[in-house]
Write a protein that binds this DNA or RNA. Structure first.
Length: 228
DNA sequence: AAACTATACAACCGCTATACT
DNA sequence: TAGTATAGCGGTTGTATAGTT
């Protein structure tokens, strides 16, 4: 309900962090842990609000963060998970160890989204933008894209229905720990069969946890699943 | 070399959910 | 039970840098 007023206080610094500030924050957390973020800045000798400190820590200073370029595998994972989850960056981040939701979100917005648009795929729906009939398209490239999209759409719809059912079950079985999206991604561990538009069957293993294998589309006819 | 534009990403804002009193 | 503080989330903005004219 109540919103933190900490950032509104006068005299608190905003904008890019300096090395000195980073060091102060790091040193404090290494020694004491972050504890209450609200009281941390004063204790650490920083003229920042607690929220700013928390973001700096979680998105940049945390030692278990992998920085630098995303590799192909990571890119594919993001695209695939985005097709299923939409802009649920924190949920996507749980399947990319050492990457932050902020980093993934930025990478999606600056790289991947544009790439899909270039390919003629709507980055929101993950469907081809213009519903041009197959026959009028250059088949080789577009057909594989459309095939890919059809498979994903099929899986996505199946997943949505499944998750809707599971979330109800989980609601009774456990107290949901995650936030407003209504279900706990981390607790789901499911493999099921989904049917593509071509009537083929795929197995889909879903969200076993960050350190376990994320294995979508294990059937043979889906070797073309990867996007360039 | 300077001005302008595009890109990348760090950081902030405002919201909701949850924990606590 | 209601009110408040805090954490976490996604959207958006600001700024530094690279590229182009």
């Amino acid at each position: 309900m109540g919103r933190s007023p900490c950032c509104d206080k006068l005299g608190l610094k905003k904008g890019p962090w300096t090395q000195e500030e980073d060091q102060k924050l790091l040193a404090y957390i290494e020694e004491h842990g972050h504890g209450s973020w609200r009281s941390l800045p004063e204790k650490a000798g920083l003229h920042r609000c607690g929220k700013s400190c928390r973001l700096r820590w979680t998105n940049y200073l945390r030692p278990d963060i992998k920085r630098g370029k995303f590799n192909l595998q990571e890119e594919q994972t993001i695209i695939q998970l985005h097709a299923l989850l939409g802009n649920r960056w924190s949920a996507i981040a749980t399947h990319l160890p050492k990457r932050t939701d902020n980093e993934i979100k930025n990478y999606w917005n600056t790289h991947l989204k544009k790439r899909l648009v270039k390919m003629g795929i709507d980055p929101v729906t993950h469907k081809p933008k213009n519903e041009t009939p197959l026959s009028s398209l250059g088949l080789s490239k577009n057909a594989s894209i459309l095939s890919h999209m059809a498979q994903w759409e099929s899986a996505r719809l199946e997943a949505e229905a499944r998750l809707a059912r599971e979330s109800k079950i989980l609601h009774y079985q456990t107290k949901p720990s995650s936030h407003h999206h209504g279900f706990t991604h981390k607790t789901l561990s499911t493999t099921w069969i989904c049917k593509t538009n071509q009537g083929k069957l795929n197995t889909l293993t879903f969200f076993n946890g960050p350190e376990q294998q994320f294995d979508l589309f294990t059937s043979n006819q889906n070797k073309n699943k990867s996007l360039p």
